[in-house]
Amino acid sequence: MDFEYVKHNDLIIYYKIYDLEFYFTKEDSFLLNDHIREFAKNKKVLDIGCGSGIQGLEAYKYTKNVSFSDISEECLKLSKINFYINYIHNNPDLDYLYKNIEKINLPIKFYQSDLFSNINEKFDLILFNPTYLPEVSYKV
């Protein structure tokens, strides 16, 4: 399958579009996502290490001053596509969007950055849900 997504809090979050693939959004992301409303209203928000963009997308419901940041170009592309689907046009041609998202002017900022290395702004709220890997045990 070329496209895979989840739905949470009225958001559609694609985590796989062709070769763009981010780890499947799980309960840790949903838990954080369920509490963003309490903190994001009318704030300047940064979703750092945004991955699929789920946290920043939720924050955008409560403030339009949201920025997304990730070290990965692929994650930023996926976040842009998810923003477009959730806030610009909810039934797009995904093939067209995949090929052209970088040409579309979106009303928010995206930074390719290793944590804060390329970010010189100040924010009221920074959302960070780092990727985790399952525990691996080794036999010695």
Rank of each mutant, 00 (worst) to 15 (best):
F3L: 13
E4G: 06
V6R: 14
H8V: 15
N9R: 14
D10H: 13
Y14N: 07
Y15V: 03
Y15M: 08
Y15L: 07
Y15I: 02
K16C: 05
K16L: 04
L20T: 02
E21W: 00
F22D: 00
Y23M: 12
Y23T: 04
F24I: 15
F24H: 13
T25G: 09
E27L: 10
E27S: 11
E27V: 13
L31F: 15
L32M: 15
D34V: 00
H35C: 08
H35S: 07
I36L: 08
E38R: 06
E38D: 15
F39H: 13
F39R: 07
K41C: 09
K41S: 13
N42H: 11
L46Y: 03
D47S: 06
D47F: 00
I48Q: 01
I48H: 01
G51T: 02
I54A: 00
G56S: 11
Y60C: 10
Y62L: 09
K64Y: 03
K64V: 05
N65P: 10
S69K: 06
S69V: 12
D70A: 11
I71H: 00
I71M: 05
S72H: 01
E73Q: 09
C75V: 03
C75F: 09
L76F: 02
L76M: 02
K77G: 04
K77V: 03
L78T: 08
L78H: 04
N82M: 09
I85H: 02
N86F: 10
I88H: 00
P92I: 02
P92H: 02
L94S: 04
D95W: 04
D95H: 12
Y96C: 07
Y98N: 09
N100L: 08
K103R: 09
K103G: 00
K103D: 06
L106Q: 06
K109V: 01
F110Q: 03
F110R: 01
S113D: 06
S113T: 06
S113F: 01
S113L: 07
D114H: 04
L115Q: 02
F116H: 08
F116E: 12
N118A: 14
I119F: 05
K122Q: 14
I126Q: 11
I126A: 11
L127V: 06
P130Y: 01
P130G: 09
P130H: 05
P130V: 02
Y132S: 09
E135K: 14
Y138E: 14
Y138Q: 12
